[in-house]
Every structure is written in structure tokens, then in C-alpha cells.
């Protein structure tokens, strides 16, 4: 890449980040992700713990187990365990919004006639999405850490944090998973040149079809296992399971070790690459009508 190309790529990435920061939907999605992680990771378990052994929604766990699940030692689990499915769906929505609105708002025409290379415009969009998901992961981590520390202080529990290595591998893997869903969303936005359709298809896929295939492949129809083992959500789940501490409590749906952490890592990274390349390849060739 020449100096000029690198400079313009940086300028375009900054422009994409500006759009992301100023877009109200980005904040709505981030707020939704934080709310979900707080409610399911801290609020419900802590209220159940405070309600004693007979409380509803304990999923068979003792009050001590519920409390342990909210303490700082579990911050990586609480931050990342929703990434393969629920938070991933929000990342996919963000990706589809970022790329799809360029077509529905007709801004792609204005962008392309300014003179940048088409691949650079959407390359910058992918980079901005990866950065944005990284920031989102850090925000989720910070809020989870704050809640965990608050509960530990309130309950007089030890403030045992994961090691730096565990934090780095956990948050790094979580970032990769979120970046994968965001890039897939962006690729769908470009392929379908819209917003509603990629969001609808993507969310149905993540929340419904993947889980259905996984369930069927794991029970009645083993012939589907090879297909299951290449699904993005399944690999994301396997990657996340490999970087969180051994679990005593239940994990969210879709988070299970189906293919192993190593294969999950490679597959998730491959999805990021394939989605980005497909998106750029399509946008380079297609008419802007």
C-alpha cells in the first residue's frame, strides 16, 4: 500500500468512525447489549441469591453458586458468554446498518463519486466495525467489572480478578466473535443492498436456525454434524467456552464446546476474512443504480 493509499485509508476509517459515533442506532445497540449483560449476568442472579434457596429462576443453583457467578472472578464469563448468540445478533444488526444504509440512503453514490477506491471505502467500513466492536467489548467488560466489584464489596466477598492472560484471551476472543457477526452483517447489507432484510435474515439465523441445526445434529440427525461444525455461531460458542473458567452454572443457549477452541478460533477468524473479502469483491463490481 502506498503512503497516499495508507493516508486515505486512515482518513476514510476516521470518517467511518465519525459516522458510527454520531449514529444514534450505535448507542441504542450498545445500551441494549449493556442492559442485557447486566440484567442476565448480574441483576437476576443477584436478586435470586438475595431471595434465598426457594427463589425462582435459580436454574438449580444454590445461592452460593449464584453469588459466585457474579463476582469479579467470573467477569470474563459474564462479559463474553452472550457474544456467540444474543450480543452477536446486536453486532450483526450494527454491521447491516452501517453498510445497508449506504444503499438505502443513496450515500454510496455520493461516496464513490468523491474519488476513493470502492474497496477502500468498504474496507474502511470493516476496519471501523472491528474497532467499534472492540470498544463495545471494553464497555461491556467495564460495566461487568463494576457490577462484580460492587457485589463483592456489598457482600464482603474476595475481590479475585482473573489473570491478565485470562482477561486478554477472553476479551480478545470475545472481540473476534463480535467482529465476526458485525462483518457478516455488513456483508449481508452489501449483498442485499438494504437494512431490514439482512437484519431479519441474520437475526433469524443466529437465534433460530443455528440453534435448530445444532440441536438436531446433536440428537436425532447426526448426519448434520459436519454442517453444524462449520456454522459461525457454533464455532463462536466453542471459542468462548475455551477461554472462560470451568462452569458450575448454566451458559446461555448456543454457548457450548462443539468443535474445540482452536478450531473455533480459526473458523471465526476465517468468517471475518471471508465476509470482508466477499463484501469488497461484490461492491467493486456491482453497478450503483
Amino acid at each position: 500500500m502506498s503512503d497516499n493509499s495508507a493516508t486515505s485509508m486512515v482518513a476514510m476509517t476516521r470518517a467511518e468512525l465519525t459516522k458510527l459515533v454520531r449514529r444514534p442506532a450505535s448507542w441504542v445497540l450498545l445500551a441494549s447489549a449493556v442492559t442485557l449483560s447486566q440484567v442476565f449476568g448480574y441483576v437476576i442472579p443477584y436478586l435470586s441469591y438475595r431471595s434465598g434457596p426457594g427463589a425462582p429462576m435459580t436454574d438449580g443453583q444454590t445461592p452460593e453458586q449464584l453469588l459466585a457467578g457474579t463476582l469479579p472472578a467470573e467477569v470474563v464469563t459474564n462479559t463474553t458468554s452472550a457474544f456467540p448468540v444474543f450480543a452477536g445478533a446486536l453486532a450483526l444488526v450494527l454491521g447491516a446498518l452501517v453498510s445497508g444504509t449506504e444503499f438505502t440512503g443513496d450515500t454510496v453514490k455520493t461516496l464513490f463519486t468523491q474519488g476513493p477506491r470502492r474497496s477502500a471505502v468498504f474496507g474502511a467500513q470493516v476496519v471501523a466495525l472491528v474497532v467499534a466492536t472492540g470498544v463495545g467489548v471494553l464497555v461491556l467488560f467495564a460495566t461487568c467489572a463494576a457490577s462484580g466489584a460492587g457485589i463483592a464489596l456489598a457482600e464482603g466477598q474476595p475481590m479475585d480478578w482473573p489473570t491478565l492472560g485470562a482477561l486478554a484471551s477472553g476479551l480478545g476472543s470475545g472481540w473476534l466473535v463480535m467482529a465476526m457477526w458485525a462483518t457478516i452483517g455488513a456483508a449481508l447489507g452489501v449483498l442485499l443492498r438494504s437494512v431490514a432484510l439482512p437484519i431479519g435474515l441474520g437475526v433469524v439465523w443466529i437465534l433460530g436456525i443455528e440453534n435448530l441445526i445444532s440441536a438436531v445434529a446433536g440428537t436425532s440427525l447426526e448426519a448434520l454434524k459436519p454442517l453444524r461444525d462449520v456454522l459461525p455461531g457454533v464455532n463462536a460458542g466453542s471459542l468462548i467456552v475455551s477461554v472462560i473458567p470451568a462452569q458450575t452454572g448454566p451458559l446461555p443457549p448456543g454457548v457450548q464446546d462443539a468443535v474445540g477452541g482452536g478450531r473455533g478460533l480459526v473458523t471465526v477468524a476465517a468468517y471475518v476474512l471471508v465476509a470482508a473479502v466477499a463484501m469488497v469483491a461484490v461492491v467493486r463490481r456491482r453497478d450503483v443504480a
Partner: peptide, 25 residues
């Protein structure tokens, strides 16, 4: 200007042009 303007509705006119300036170098 081809077949109507396409800009980001949540950004000001100035910010829209500042973004376009980055794409146009």
C-alpha cells in the same frame, strides 16, 4: 450531483461535507 443528493440524515450539512472531504482527499 447525480439524481438527487445522498447524505447522512443524522449529521449536519457541514459534517456531511467534512466527511465527503475525507473521501475526496
Amino acid at each position: 450531483l447525480i439524481e438527487g443528493p445522498g447524505f447522512y440524515p443524522y449529521l449536519s450539512g457541514r459534517t456531511n461535507l467534512e466527511l465527503m472531504a475525507r473521501y475526496a482527499a
